[in-house]
Simulated assay, not measured.
Amino acid sequence: MNIQLRPKEALSAQAAKSRVAKYDWVEISEDLSSQGCAVIERLLSQDECRQVATLYPQEEHFRSHVHMARHGFGKGEYRYFKYPLPELLSSLRTALYPRLAVIANEWNVRMNIDRRYPAQHADFLKECHAGGQTRPTPLLLQYVPGDFNCLHQDLYGDLAFPLQVAILLSEPGKDFTGGEFVLTEQRPRMQSRVEVVQLRQGDAVAFAVHNRPVKGTKGTYRVNLRHGVSRVRTGMRHTVGIIFHDAK
């Protein structure tokens, strides 16, 4: 059955901007800065989650299909969306970016990185495309029992946005069990720290893709982060990933 995101069900750019603005971005920024991740509760409704998940078998929406085991990424599969993105995802990508760009720029100041990100996503994409990074990176992931995603970083070119968002589309305990989102942080001269993020259907997690600044006794230093998904025990788990830079 071919189910489309009909215009009346889609999320317009203005509606997405209004929805995103309702969250406490001071608290989100503090969580990201202190933990490397922050939960954005109920970013999508139950119906919106189902609408996005049903796109998975519809090949016309995607530019590529990846089986993780073939590449040593874990076990499971995902599809990269092609342009134009579904309006719901495109609108959220555009609305979330400015909020996260403020955090990304503040982090770069703290880490003595010269790079500054433009205020609007369209301008950032122009920079990506000028650098030869023209392929869209939002993706839809599907896991069944035994599947997992190895710890990794989503870096697709020289120009990579340091924050990313993943939205859980399935309902834990009903649609699947297991499959927790996991974030690890490698600290200099210390053992790694693990964060297991509990999400409900429609919840999003914003997280650091590569590094985040940490204040130490001798100033600010960088810690390295990776993210993944633990083994799914039962059922089927769908997640959509919103990555803000395009790929080569």
Rank of each mutant, 00 (worst) to 15 (best):
P7A: 03
Y78C: 01
A16F: 00
P213K: 07
P84V: 04
E41Y: 11
R70I: 00
S64T: 14
Q35N: 14
R116Q: 14
E195I: 13
V196N: 10
A104G: 02
Q198K: 14
S91L: 03
P57E: 09
H67E: 13
H61N: 15
N224V: 12
A119N: 11
E185Y: 04
P98D: 03
F81R: 09
S230G: 09
H152K: 10
A122T: 09
V223C: 12
K215Y: 04
V223Q: 09
T137L: 10
C49E: 01
Q133V: 05
N2V: 13
L139H: 11
N211V: 05
V214R: 13
L88N: 04
S192L: 07
L225K: 07
S45M: 08
H227A: 12
P7K: 05
V39I: 11
Q201M: 04
G157H: 01
L155R: 12
A53T: 10
V229K: 06
S64D: 13
V66E: 01
Y80Q: 02
D47W: 00
Q198F: 08
F148R: 13
V240P: 08
A38N: 05
L183K: 09
E48F: 10
R226L: 02
D175L: 02
K218G: 01
G74F: 00
P145F: 02
G219C: 07
F176D: 03
G146S: 10
L125D: 00
I243P: 05
T94Y: 07
S170N: 08
P84S: 04
D24A: 04
N2C: 07
W107Y: 06
S34L: 14
F124E: 04
G235L: 06
V182L: 15
H238C: 11
N112V: 07
Q58M: 12
S18C: 12
L183P: 01
G131S: 12
E30F: 13
Q142E: 12
M68V: 00
K82Q: 14
R187W: 07
P98S: 10
R231K: 15
G132D: 08
N224F: 08
T239I: 13
A10D: 14
L43Y: 09
R200K: 14
A247V: 11
K75H: 13
F181E: 10
Q191Y: 11
L11C: 02
V39M: 00
L44H: 05
L100F: 04
N149P: 09
Q46R: 14
Y56K: 06
E30D: 15
T134G: 12
N108G: 03
S18Q: 15
D31M: 13
A130L: 07
E48Y: 02
G219W: 02
Q164G: 02
L11A: 07
Y56H: 09
L5Y: 01
E60F: 03
K215H: 13
S33T: 15
L55I: 00
R212D: 05
R19F: 07
T54V: 14
F73Q: 15
